[in-house]
Design a binder for these strands. Structure first.
Lengths: 357, 357
DNA sequence: ATATTTAACGAAAACGTTTTCGTGTTGACA
DNA sequence: TGTCAACACGAAAACGTTTTCGTTAAATAT
């Protein structure tokens, strides 16, 4: 077992000082060509690689960014991570992930665990419980300690930071308008409770699209699902609720659902009730995941481009980190020329598949 | 902006030495009750938290484990991560993830990036390209540097380390036997190319189950998909290949697929060909993901318990890390009492749903 | 009164780097 | 021969901790 070699060991072995080794390895012209070659050869032979931790301590930056998300077994979030990892890696950063599991406490614990030097900045999406409590002090606290945060998807006005969101409102409008164009007269909405902002925005988009088409919104055509309960045997509850909903409103000929699970389940229930899709009922979901692509019939969805969100978030964060760095190196700190916080909106796109005409 | 406070600053402010502050905060009885209280109060007021990087450097361990997987937008892998994160967090560790994207080179780059002090050990699943090249030197190299590795799912005999695998062979056997019990006479296999070990094992299980039932294996009933190509417009290729396969073998009444995508696609194609499931054809897939659960009809699958695999992997790794630690503290190193490498097998389980009788 | 213990604290090393600032030796030049 | 660069290298500080080993003064024992 050959433990990793350090500068000190190289120095001792070659009978030079640590500083000489360090300089030689960085090709400093302070060191003679002879010794430089000798040291570099030795270093290569023993596969020397500088210790990241020591570098982090010295440079006071870790070159890693922390991701904090509610859940990882979730197509949307994993695409976002993929996007983040992609640009992070390209720009020389690592990513460390924490899962809040939708819990306020775990969110805080994770943040504190990572904020003590392990990372240079956060990219996160707020947990449901935190949104419900509306307690955002931990975000502001870490920002105040000088650690930048980028929020994506589930964001909140109470925190001042860069944000990357999808245009939930317009996405919903687009979807509902498509249903209207396709001839739907009675369009239902299947949504979540209001405290998750994205659900709320999509609901507003639905209402707006309906009303702007001269149709009168009918409260009976809106089904709100409480998903705060146990997720596992949630499925049957969901099916029976939707079944009941469809039976009480037999005139429904179009459905807009705020996520793909609701949409797919709606299709399944409709089919069981003897309806054919898209002839009797057209369905559009939000979030373009595996389910949408492989359901039968495949589902028309509003794509939110998770990977792109991740990439943008990472770029925003790293841009800010490197701006800070440049600023620090400036002698005359030109009056706190801070970049303003950016709210980036990722446009949605409708992916047409078999569930609409 | 209140930057994080350090021991040195506390010491200066309170006019004591750094050592005193450190000791007071750890409740050393070397320090008088008065000063201890004073220091602790001050530390609390300024929300002092020790810097993780400094601790890592001092202790020569980072309390974080590196995950290296081929892909994250993949239900199985994300459940594994969830499992890892769960026990890692419970046992005081963070996780840092790298994605190889099924590429040999990215796998190496990621390993080298993390192996230089950033983590204490690896949990990984080998990329397809690496399996194809059969070049495992980078794994052995990092192991030789004293960094423990746990491999899961896609493992390989050439590397000596702890491994967590699912019983692919028996899982396949179980699935095929169930099809036989259910009356299937001509059972097809849809699988991948052989170089991914799990695919090979599942294929062997299929063959074994068929033969042990007295049926003669028919090479025509095996469809091998080459998934090394572009994944995105892979779907249509997949569908046409399966359609062609089904048409040339109209007698097929049972299908075992080595992953859920193949299984769901098979169902879709079968349906288009006018077959009803499970009456005309029964289908069982491997890997219990979202697709299986929400397909119509829902898919009977062999569950590989990804989260459990993750949990076991993390426990194996951390156990080894802490064993090493204990060993280091021992004065009389009792003759390299190393724990042998463990190969843990996670039993599969058949989840019965609508695609079988 | 002297010796010894104890209490309470500080100095310094160590973890592995990088970088600034010497310092000694050489050679060139006046 | 004396002065000064240039060259090649080393010492030390710094990043933020923890821990070992003093050190001083007071308290106790003899």
């Amino acid at each position: 077992m050959k433990k990793k070699i350090t500068l000190k060991q190289i120095a001792r072995e070659l009978d030079v000082s640590v500083s000489t080794v360090s300089k030689a390895l960085s090709n400093s012209k302070e060191i003679s060509e002879d010794t430089t070659k000798k040291i570099q050869a030795f270093a290569k032979l023993y596969n020397y690689k500088p210790n990241n931790i020591a570098l982090s301590l010295k440079n006071r930056k870790t070159k890693t960014i922390g991701i904090l998300i509610p859940e990882i077994v979730h197509h949307f979030f994993s695409t976002v991570i993929r996007g983040i990892e992609r640009v992070a890696n390209r720009r020389g950063y690592n990513v460390i992930v924490g899962l809040s599991n939708e819990s306020f406490t775990k969110e805080i614990i994770n943040m504190e665990m990572l904020a003590n030097g392990s990372i240079d900045g956060f990219i996160l999406s707020i947990s449901k419980e935190t949104l419900l409590k509306q307690d955002y002090h931990h975000f502001n606290a870490t920002i105040n300690q000088g650690m930048p945060i980028v929020m994506f998807d589930r964001v909140v006005n109470e925190v001042d930071c860069d944000k990357v969101i999808v245009d939930d409102f317009n996405g919903a409008v687009k979807a509902v308008k498509k249903l209207i164009e396709n001839g739907c007269k009675n369009i239902a909405l299947i949504t979540t409770m209001d405290y998750v902002s994205v659900g709320r925005l999509r609901t507003q988009g639905y209402l707006d699209a309906i009303q702007s088409s001269g149709i009168e919104a009918d409260a009976n055509l809106i089904l709100k699902i409480d998903d705060s309960l146990d997720v596992e045997n949630h499925l049957e509850v969901l099916e029976t609720e939707i079944a009941h909903f469809f039976k009480s409103n037999p005139n429904i000929d179009g459905v807009f659902a705020v996520n793909e699970l609701y949409a797919v389940t709606a299709m399944k229930v409709a089919r069981k009730l003897g309806l054919t899709i898209p002839d009797d009922m057209q369905v559009i979901g939000f979030t373009d995941g595996v389910l949408s692509k492989h359901a039968t019939p495949s589902l028309t969805t509003v794509s939110q481009h998770g990977q792109k969100m991740g990439e943008q978030s990472a770029n925003l964060l790293i841009d800010r980190l490197e701006a800070e760095e440049a600023e620090t190196e400036q002698y005359f700190t030109n009056n706190e020329q801070k970049r303003d916080f950016i709210k980036m909106v990722i446009e949605t796109e409708i992916i047409e598949r078999e569930s609409t005409k």
